[in-house]
Each structure stands twice: as structure tokens, then as C-alpha cells.
Computed example of a mutant assay.
Amino acid sequence: MKKIFALVLILLMGALFLNVFAQDKQPSFSVKTSGKGKQAILFIPGFTCSGDVWNETTTHLGNKYTSHVFTMAGYAGSPAQAAPNLDVWIEDIVAYVRKNKLDHPVIIGHSLGGGLAMALASRYPDLFGKIIVVDALPCLGSLWNPSFKSEAQPDCSAMESQIMPLTDSQLYKMQKRTAVQLCADTLAQKSIVKWGATTDKKTYADTYCQFANMDQRESIGQIKIPALVLLEARFVNFKPAIEDQYKQMKTATLKFADKGLHFIMYDDKEWYLNQIDQFLQ
């Protein structure tokens, strides 16, 4: 009887181990590809967003490029990882580029995706061809707090305690309030709200906390490839501070949108697409 009990215990522990291992091995992202161009472009969406945020952009670019559109794990209803980590996401994107033998792809990232794009280009300066950052800063925290300092291991428990208890209805209402502050296009707001409301709450809390802790003001000095930074219209009011954040990124050209809010691809689409076309050509 003792031997049978011990065997059952071992099997149960093994099943538990496999389950935890399987959760930990959940991929960092899913990817949709389109286009048939020789030049590859990686599209990394912003916080809680689906890769569908790039639909108008990839349609505009058409077959001139091959688009690789990412949706990060846990965002917009996609399967979540047990322990979401931005550094792991960065390394997994690098592994994707190498596995698929992409030759110096362009990176286009919005918001959090822009932060990841800068990290990729600074850590792997020879792997990519160009970078476009859409409304992201090397250190968002320092824009409001000049004495901001990044922590080696940020404590995300406070953020988790705010987000985890929310009901689906409460999360939806929070996203609805936030969307109007980030996007002027009322039709696009509906998609943004849906993506945020269906994002895994632990992923929401942990990745927001990690993103808010990022300080890349010095590390972006390692970026040697051509860089275009497209910023929302309101940021022109903080132009000196923003230029100071980007001063180490010698290859960067900063441009401010004429109108709209954070989702430039919706709010100032014609200007945004024109800037991308000129830069890529």
C-alpha cells in the first residue's frame, strides 16, 4: 500500500511539474505575416493591444515588404504566460529573427512596443536595419519626475493589488475611460477598449510595472541604425525634455504629429503613413 501511495504521489508531482513547465513555456507572442517584399518589418504593438492595431499600416505597405505582426502573450485575449517578463519577450523576438533568418529587418513599435524596439536595437545593434518608434520615450517616468531612477528588480505587487481584484466589468469601464484619453478616433476607441478589457490581468499589471520602470536614456546610445521617432501632438509642449531623453540616440530624427493623441496611426493617419513611407524609402 505504501509503495502504491508513493507511486501515486510521484505521478501527481510529475503532472504538477509538467503543468507548471507548460505554463512557463507559453510563447511570448503570436505572429501573423503578410506581404511578399524582400525587406522584412517587425511590428510590435503597444500596451494591451492586439497586432491588429497595425492593420491599416500593413495594408498601406502592401507587398512592398513582408510584415511580421506580433501580438504579445496575455494581451487582447491571447494566451498568457505564468510570469510575463519584458526581457524574455525581447530575447524571444531576437530568437524569432534568427530562426526565420530575417536579414536586418526594420522594427516598428508603438508605445510599449516602441520601448521594446529601442531595447532590441540597442542590445543587438547589428541585427536590425532601421527602427521606427511611435509615441514612446526612453524613460517615461522621468518626463513627470526629473529625479526618476530605475530599479534593478521593480516590485510589481502594488500594481497587481490594484488590477487583480477588478471584475471584468470594472476592467472594461477602466479601459473605456482610458481610451478617450489616448485616442481621438471614436471608432478606433472601441477596438482599444476591447483589447484592454480582454488582456490577462496579471500580464497587464506586471508588464505595465516593468515598462514604467524602464530607463533607456543611456543605452540607446548603442543604436547605430537610422531611427525615426514619431510623437503625438501634445508632446511638442515638452519638446526640450523629450529631445534631452533622446540626445544619446545620435541617429534619431524626432517628428511631432499635427493632431490627435497617443494612437497616431489612427488620429493622424495620413501624416503618419507619409512619414513611414519617406523613412523606409
Score class of each variant (00 low, 15 high):
87 D>I: 00
50 S>F: 06
211 F>C: 04
71 T>Y: 06
97 V>G: 00
272 Y>W: 12
61 L>Q: 04
134 V>A: 13
165 P>G: 07
79 P>H: 06
92 D>S: 01
204 Y>Q: 05
24 D>P: 05
83 A>S: 14
5 F>C: 08
214 M>P: 03
25 K>N: 15
129 G>M: 05
29 F>R: 08
133 V>F: 07
15 A>F: 11
265 M>D: 04
136 A>E: 14
111 S>L: 11
200 D>G: 07
277 D>G: 00
134 V>T: 11
271 W>K: 05
264 I>R: 10
57 T>W: 09
53 V>F: 11
259 K>W: 07
238 F>T: 12
21 F>M: 10
24 D>Q: 15
61 L>G: 01
68 H>R: 10
28 S>R: 03
205 A>S: 02
3 K>I: 15
221 G>F: 07
126 D>V: 09
50 S>H: 06
83 A>K: 13
99 K>D: 01
152 A>S: 13
86 L>T: 00
130 K>W: 02
102 L>W: 06
47 F>R: 10
203 T>S: 04
113 G>I: 06
119 A>L: 12
196 G>N: 06
53 V>D: 03
24 D>E: 15
264 I>P: 05
277 D>M: 00
24 D>K: 15
266 Y>N: 13
90 I>H: 04
175 Q>H: 10
82 A>N: 12
143 L>V: 10
75 Y>N: 10
260 G>V: 11
131 I>E: 12
224 K>H: 12
234 R>F: 15
172 Y>A: 12
61 L>S: 03
30 S>I: 12
153 Q>I: 12
47 F>Y: 15
162 Q>T: 08
254 L>A: 06
76 A>T: 08
17 F>W: 13
121 A>S: 12
96 Y>L: 01
66 T>V: 04
22 A>E: 13
87 D>A: 02
99 K>P: 00
173 K>L: 14
197 A>V: 09
56 E>H: 13
101 K>S: 10
183 C>Q: 09
271 W>L: 04
122 S>G: 04
196 G>A: 09
